[in-house]
Computed example of a mutant assay.
Amino acid sequence: MTRVCLVGADDVNLRYELLSRETARDALATYDLREPFENAVGLETVSLGAAVALLNDLNWYLVRFVDEAMVLEPSVSESEWLSRELATAVRDDAVGPDELARFLKIYGLEPASADDPDGSDPDGAERGDAPAGDDGADSTGPKRLVEPMYVTRTGGAVPDYDLREVEETVVERVTESEFGA
């Protein structure tokens, strides 16, 4: 199964924005939605092609409400996400293996924000649709992605995240154009 994760912009409640609009709600209706990270919507699709097609269907909403759209394709990596652009390039066989793993965006992963101690979102809806151990979720709710660091992989190892003290990170592979942007 290919996983999709949409990370909401700081000033929006992503789940609300997507589900309050009929077209997005219809596109997402067949999926079991989760919250793998704070203010994120996660789901599983049957293939990389289906994941890219869903992102294309949701493009209007992604442009307005989403900071990052990531795809986790097991045939590429079990632990490193792909950016939307890179996932599309992989689907289209437009990227070589050397570029596929070279450019990275590494996020720190921290406990949910301190201003939300009860685990509810700004509209008062309870969280808890992300089971413990699923991506960034734990018993206190989903963790928050913070401060991405752009790095180039050399020698096969992922460089350490050093922008702040975090126990966990999330690695996203990006295209060369996204890396240089």
Rank of each mutant, 00 (worst) to 15 (best):
A51R: 05
A51E: 04
A51K: 07
A51L: 05
V52E: 07
A53S: 15
A53G: 03
L54M: 03
L54V: 02
N56W: 00
D57F: 00
D57K: 14
L58W: 05
N59M: 12
Y61R: 07
Y61T: 09
Y61D: 10
L62K: 12
L62T: 09
L62H: 04
F65R: 01
V66R: 01
V66W: 02
D67E: 12
D67G: 09
D67S: 11
D67I: 00
D67P: 00
E68H: 03
E68N: 00
M70P: 00
V71Q: 00
E73M: 01
P74N: 09
S75C: 06
S75Q: 12
S75M: 08
S75H: 09
V76T: 15
S77V: 12
E78H: 04
E78V: 02
L82D: 02
R84P: 00
E85C: 05
E85N: 07
L86V: 05
A87E: 01
A87Y: 02
A87R: 04
A87H: 07
T88R: 11
T88M: 01
T88E: 11
A89C: 05
V90Y: 03
V90T: 03
V90W: 06
V90Q: 01
D92R: 14
D93G: 04
D93T: 04
D93M: 05
V95A: 03
P97N: 12
P97M: 09
P97Y: 03
E99P: 02
E99V: 02
E99D: 15
L100G: 09
A101M: 13
A101C: 13
A101R: 15
R102T: 15
L104Y: 06
L104G: 05
K105R: 15
I106A: 08
I106N: 09
Y107C: 09
Y107V: 09
G108Q: 08
G108I: 04
L109H: 13
L109N: 10
E110M: 07
A114C: 02
A114V: 10
A114R: 11
D115K: 06
D115C: 02
D116M: 08
D116H: 07
D116F: 06
D118P: 00
G119M: 06
S120L: 12
S120E: 12
D121F: 11
D121E: 14
P122C: 14
P122Q: 14
D123P: 01
D123E: 13
G124E: 03
E126H: 00
E126K: 07
E126T: 01
E126Q: 06
R127V: 08
R127S: 15
G128M: 11
G128N: 12
G128P: 08
D129F: 08
D129E: 14
D129Q: 09
A130W: 03
P131E: 11
G133S: 06
G133A: 10
D134T: 15
D135W: 15
G136W: 06
T140Y: 13
G141T: 08
P142V: 08
R144S: 08
R144N: 06
R144T: 12
R144Q: 11
L145H: 13
E147Y: 10
P148L: 04
M149V: 14
Y150N: 08
Y150Q: 06
V151D: 10
T152D: 02
R153N: 06
R153L: 09
R153F: 02
R153G: 01
R153M: 14
G155D: 13
G155I: 05
G156L: 00
A157K: 11
V158R: 13
D160T: 10
D160C: 01
D160P: 02
D160L: 10
D162R: 14
